[in-house]
Each structure stands twice: as structure tokens, then as C-alpha cells.
Simulated assay, not measured.
Amino acid sequence: MLFFGIFSVVCAEETDDESVNESVDESLDENADVSSSSDEEEGLFSSICTQPYALCNTAFCVPDQDDPTKMRCSCTVEKGPSIGKSCDTWEPVGIYMDEYGDWMIKAGYSVGQITSTYSFAHAAPLPKNEIDPNNTPYGYSGDVYLKPCMNETGEGVWADCWDAPCTVLPQDINADISTDRLASPYAVCDCGLKVNQSEWYIGVHGTELCDDPNLCHEYIISGAGLMSTDVGVKKLAEFIKENPDPTEPYKEGHCEDCLYCASNTSAESL
């Protein structure tokens, strides 16, 4: 699967799906304080920033070796408008984008440090969802949709990456630290764990995964509460309408509104 393949590129450790779920299940009995609520806080997205950040909207995650209630998630490194809890209070450390569009680790830094926020980068280009069609970059191939997940017993589990600290490694870990060097296009983020969940969103690549009935339950994927995500989407869309950015020409499409899903062939605006 595409997401899990990305994770394996960034993390040297390999954990199979069964052992992931067993590790989480074993930890929950001993850690009753793991967060179980997610949808009350409309203030979750309080800041909009235009600086390097990690985007974990489609990230598959595995438990941290030292604390199975903490998730380690592979996320893409992006630059542009994003929305988060407090991104106006932090700055990226040791990482920048050069004039060729490559991510670089600064000389003297062993790794780069960024924070996970949320954006429309990679969002599917649905009709009626364009923010500015004339700003769409040539060859844009965004295909990410928001997929709603439900657990009728209230025992759903997902990774919470909002405002999580993330580490970006150099592409060559043996490169001379005294020089600027190419960074990985992926960050490893230290995310929290949400348990006892009834409804949440995950991001998926393409409409085929929109119709996958097992995706929400067989993996631990970076997600978000329904209310907080809907509020964040609206706030970010309003910002981009006033401040167009060629890297994010579209809103995030919902699976229910996608063009070619088996369950719905009509496209509607968010």
C-alpha cells in the first residue's frame, strides 16, 4: 500500500499490522488517561502560517518502541499556508527550501525540526472546489480525499498529529554536518493516540480507498475529529481565497462528494 511504503522509507523499523494492534491494545489497559475526546474544540485551528511544516493527512503510524500510547507517523514536508493550534508561536529549526525547491538541512544541524499542521496540499481537484482555477499549477496531481470513519461501539483508534513535533533527517545521514545538505522529503512526527472514538476523518489517496471498508479499522492512521476538521477547512479556505497560493488551489474533497466513488458519482462543493 502506498502509505505504508512511504513510512518504510523514512523509518528503519518495520512493524507488521498485527503487532501494531497488539501493542496498542496491551497498552490501553495500563494507560487509562489516553485522550478519548476530539470534537469539542473549535479553537483547535487558531493560527494560519506560511512556513515549512509537516502534513500528516494520509500518514500511517506505528507505536513508539518506548511508549505504545505514542504514535510515530511518516508525514510529507511542505511549505505554504497551513493551519494549526499555534503555528504562529514556533519557527522551523535547521531546515529551509533552496532556490531549486529542495529541502535542505542547515550546516551545523544534525536534523531539521518542524511541526505538523494542516493544509490543502495534495487535495483532489474536484469541480466546484477550485479556489482559483487560474492559479492551478501545471501537472497538478492532488488526489487526497477526506474519508469519514465510524465505530458504532465507540472503540475507534487513530493518531492525533495536530501540533506534533516532527524530525526531518538528511537524505545522507553520513554527509558532512558542517555543510548544508539535502533533507528527506518526509518527516517523522511524534503523534498522540486517540481511543474510544465514534467518528473521525482520515485522508486517503484516490477514490478506490474511499470505498475501502476496512481502512479505518485495520490500521492506525493520522486523523482528526469531524467538527475540528470542518472548522479548519472553512478557515483555511477563507484565507486562501484572500491570499491565493499556487501550491493549494483546491479545498479538500470529501469521499461522499468524489467523482468516481462507487457509492456516489456526483461532485458537490464542500
Rank of each mutant, 00 (worst) to 15 (best):
N129T: 15
Y118K: 13
S269F: 05
D230N: 15
E41K: 09
W158M: 06
A59S: 15
E40P: 00
H254L: 14
A12Y: 05
N243M: 02
P92S: 03
C149I: 05
C161G: 03
A59I: 05
Y260D: 14
S222E: 03
C161N: 07
E256I: 04
I131Y: 11
I240T: 07
D190I: 10
M1A: 05
H217Q: 08
T117I: 05
V204G: 09
E208N: 08
G154C: 01
H254K: 12
H205T: 05
D180T: 02
I177P: 03
T50F: 11
H205I: 03
W162I: 13
K194P: 07
G142V: 14
C189A: 04
I220V: 14
G203H: 01
E155C: 08
T247N: 13
A237N: 11
L270S: 12
G101R: 03
S27H: 13
A175G: 10
I220D: 04
L28G: 03
D257F: 12
N134E: 15
E218H: 01
A59W: 04
E199M: 10
T179W: 12
C255A: 04
L259V: 14
V111I: 11
A237I: 08
C73S: 02
V168T: 06
I6L: 08
L215N: 05
V233Y: 06
E30M: 10
K70D: 05
I173R: 13
T69P: 12
S86P: 09
P249T: 08
S35P: 10
Y109P: 03
W103H: 03
C255L: 11
Q171S: 10
K70H: 09
D64H: 09
C49E: 06
P125C: 07
D17L: 01
D66R: 09
T58Y: 00
D190A: 10
S198R: 15
T207N: 01
K79V: 10
S38K: 12
G5E: 12
K241V: 09
P244S: 05
Y96S: 02
T76L: 05
V168F: 04
L44S: 13
C210S: 04
I202V: 14
G84N: 01
D102R: 09
V20Y: 00
S110R: 12
N196I: 00
S178G: 01
S269L: 00
L126P: 07
G139P: 07
M227G: 01
S269P: 00
Y138A: 14
H205W: 07
Y118W: 15
V233K: 13
N21D: 08
C210A: 02
A159N: 06
N135S: 13
Y219I: 02
T89A: 05
C166F: 02
E252P: 11
V34N: 11
E42D: 09
I202P: 12
K194W: 10
E218N: 02
C258W: 13
N151T: 03
N151I: 08
G203I: 00
P213S: 12
D16S: 06
A164F: 02
E18S: 10
K194E: 09
G154P: 13
P137W: 07
P137H: 11
Y145E: 04
G203M: 10
G192A: 12
D102Y: 00
S46H: 10
T58M: 01
S198Q: 15
T179L: 15
S38V: 14
G101A: 08
Y53P: 05
L226F: 11
F45N: 06
N243L: 03
H205C: 01
S82H: 04
I221P: 01
